[in-house]
Design a protein around this nucleic acid. Structure first.
Lengths: 149, 149
DNA sequence: ATGAGTGCAAAGGCTTTGCATTAGG
DNA sequence: CCTAATGCAAAGCCTTTGCACTCAT
């Protein structure tokens, strides 16, 4: 959905990592590449399965680093495992549609009109509560076509 | 936010539990009471701390039963512990505003106009994706007034 | 009576951490 | 060079499960 190219992302990654004094290492490059290569958010297990040479602890640590750098977003659903995808400034702002039976997650976007109206509304609510907003998150929970067969 | 009284809830609870062949026992009553007595979603630890006589395993098991019965909702946020509150048909439909630093969760409602517009929009999206929707979930993530001091 | 519910302790499963080794700048 | 990053294994932590006991209908 975004037009950001792979090389752009490498530059972004390098710069955002160095901003928090972290290196863009081979392992971290590989994680970014894996996430770039999937059309939907994936779990750590799926990442580990995609390359048996990956060390579990490094994947956990590096996803955490990439998340801190603002390159990767961690998605928590219900009881399922956490899913990971590239950050919104790379993929564009979107929301998630989650299949409860199989745990699969797809990205979707609201129409610009609704998105804007929602953001305005949320801003007002945050003000009422004395909160400063980082972001909002909207999920659709249900059953995908495959699982309802 | 709802006008449902405690006795109404006891009847609801009894009926919804019996619908799935579960009893409305002393422990389960106590959980409902605890949740009724808090204005915001709480964690299992907070429940356990509220009464040292509660057995951890029973709290886990009974919250799961109450959730299956549709009486209790489990809220998953980020890395924090799960939070629990009474189900929406008791509390009314609402969303969550989450303080990332301290993990506290508060309930809020959208204006009816935005809520309706959002639901309509989500329905269309779900149709596009071949999903059947159970529910949607909207969270505001940020920092509460207390934590930003 | 008799199966559901309970409570304790032990086991599970995902995630994090310690530590020696390797590699990036 | 010199610290950050890595990988293995061990430890942590929340949650679930096994099992004998108790309670509800």
């Amino acid at each position: 959905m975004s037009t950001t190219s792979a090389t752009d992302i490498d530059q972004l990654a390098a710069s955002q990592l160095s901003a928090i004094n972290q290196r863009y290492t081979k392992n971290r490059r590989q994680l970014v590449e894996i996430l770039l290569g999937t059309s939907k958010p994936i779990t750590i297990n799926q990442i580990l399965e995609s390359d048996s040479k990956l060390a579990q602890s490094s994947v956990y640590r590096n996803l955490a680093v990439l998340e801190q750098a603002g390159l990767v977003a961690k998605i928590i659903t219900n009881d399922e495992h956490a899913h990971y995808e590239l950050a919104e400034h790379i993929l564009d702002h979107h929301h998630h549609i989650i299949c409860s039976p199989c745990g699969e997650i797809l990205d979707f976007q609201l129409t610009e009109k609704i998105e804007k109206a929602l953001e305005k509304s949320l801003k007002e609510i945050a003000d009422d509560y004395g909160f400063s907003i980082d972001r909002h998150r909207l999920d659709l929970l249900g059953t995908c076509g495959e699982c309802s067969k």
